[in-house]
Amino acid sequence: MEGITPEQLAQIQQQCIFCQIASGKVASKKIYEDEKVVAVLDINPANPGHLLVITKKHYFVMPQMPDDEVEHVGKIAKQLSQVLLKALKLEGTTVFIANGVAAGQKAQHFMMHIIPRKEGDEVGIQVQPKQISETDYDKIYQALSQGIKKNLGDITGLEKKSEEKTEEKESKEKISEEETEEKEIEDAEIVKEDAEESKPKIVIDERKKKEKKKTEKKEKEKKKKNKDKEGASLDDIAKVLGA
C-alpha cells in the first residue's frame, strides 16, 4: 500500500466514490464538514440517523493516517455521538471502525460509523466474551507488549521505570539544594563585606562549616550509590573479563 505513486493515488481518488462524496462531486446528505473530515448519512443505514465520518484525504485504513487526523476523528466521534443522542433521543450509540476486509471493511476508503441505538433495535454487533487459558493470555501479552513498545515507545508508569525516575528526581533535588546553599554563602559574604568588614573570621568559619557539611553529604551519597550498584557492578566486571 505504501508503494503507490502520486499518479496512481490521483487515479484512485478519481475512482473512489467516498473521495467524491467528501469533495462534494457526488451528492449526499451532509451533516458536518471541516478541513479534515466530512460526516454524511449512510444510504444503507443500520438505523435512521446512521452517520459515516469520511476523511477528505484518501486512506485505505486507519494505520495510514497521521496522529493529528486520528485524534481529530476521535473528537468528532464524541461530538457527533452527543448530537445524535440529543437530536434523536437515543439511549446509546455504537462507534465502529473496520481496518481490512477480514474486519468487515467493504469500501477502499477509511470511514467511521456512528450508529444510533435504541433498546431492541436488532442491529447486531455483539462482543461475546470468551474464557481464555492463562498460558494463552501470557503468550499474547508478551507478543503484543513487544509490538506496542515498538509503536508507542517504552511502557511508562510500570514499576521498574517509575523507580528509576524517582531516583533521578532525588539526585536532581540534591544538586539544587547544594546550589542554593552556595548562593546563600555568597549572599552572606556580600552582606558581611558591606557591613564594614567587621567580623571576617566568622564568615570564614561559617564557610568552613558549610563546606564540611557538603563533603559529608557527598560522601554519604556516594556510599548509597555504591550500595545500590553492587549488583550491577558484578555484571560489569563479568563483561570486562569476557572482553
Binding site: 486507519m62 494505520p63 466521534a77 455521538s81 437515543l90 439511549e91 446509546g92 450509540t93 455504537t94 462507534v95 465502529f96 471502525i97 473496520a98 481496518n99 481490512g100 476486509v101 477480514a102 474486519a103 468487515g104 471493511q105 450508529i115 441505538r117 435504541k118 433498546e119 431492541g120 433495535d121 454487533i125 462482543v127 499474547i140 507478543a143 503484543l144 513487544q146 509490538g147 506496542i148 515498538k150 509503536n151 508507542l152
Partner: peptide
C-alpha cells in the same frame, strides 16, 4: 495498538469499537 496487532499477532484486520450505552 492496532498497528501492533497487525505486526505482532499477524492478524488480517482490526476493529475499533465503542459500545456507548446499554442498548449498544
Amino acid at each position: 495498538i492496532s498497528m501492533a496487532c497487525f505486526e505482532s499477532l499477524g492478524v488480517q484486520g482490526t476493529n475499533l469499537l465503542i459500545q456507548n450505552g446499554l442498548p449498544a
